[in-house]
Amino acid sequence: MFKRKLSALQYPNSDSLNANDEQQFRKVIVWLEENKIKKYKADKRAISDVNSSNWKNSFEQYKRDVLCPVKPNLTIEELDWFLNFALDIEYLKNKSKYEQHSLAVIKSASIPNVVADNPLDCLDFGGDDFKNGVDCIAKMLKISPHPNPLVTLKACSKLICSRLNPESIKNPNDFIIKGTPFPYEDAIKGYNLGDPILSKAAKSLRLLYIQNLRDLQTQCNESIVFVQNMTANPKTDTKLGKVGK
């Protein structure tokens, strides 16, 4: 039980602990306090006497002192909490040492340190300046802003790439989608949710979903055509059967 956590803390009998055994449980708690947690001074540890008849009361007091939220008599949960607590202390003690092995450090060590010459990379994406700037662009492009400025920026970029590229500015009519008006409020049935605004929103979502599905289907078709380029070889041989008179 708790083998990994115990061995990380270098508890001597980490392999054979049975937390349901009252005596063993008391011993672990005391070991943790004496070697890792060290809440009390060495001479003031009432819980150190594992054979005391008053141990349970001392333990509850100890729990209050270390702010352990676990309810009484849940041995496993209590032990787990104390192990985590001890691990936390251990970690904080050697934080700098462990951080050498963190993913971020390893990654940055293996990637050559590039100084971004793109000024956009140096922007503070969380700042008000950025947010106001993006909102401003969105307003110009008539895009309703999203609470997350990055999402808004993505929408702006999409519009600029598809509609404001040199090609589409030259021949705007080739790129403006000419739809025929569609009475979606009457035509989509089964979305009457009582509230007209809600129904309208549901119907709009339905249309967006259909558009997504269309894009997916087009991609499927493109994949099929790609494979057909390699496999297709349609043949007919009129000698096999009789056609015409």
């Binding site: 349609p234 043949k235 007919t236 041989d237 009129t238 096999l240 059967g241 009789k242 056609v243 015409g244 008179k245």
Partner: peptide, 19 residues
């Protein structure tokens, strides 16, 4: 009509022309 008839095998006992 003749062109369709010349391309599609029809009738009882007809055989396909796709090998």
């Amino acid at each position: 009509a003749q062109s369709l008839f010349d391309h599609i095998p029809v009738g009882v006992g007809s055989k396909g022309i796709i090998p």
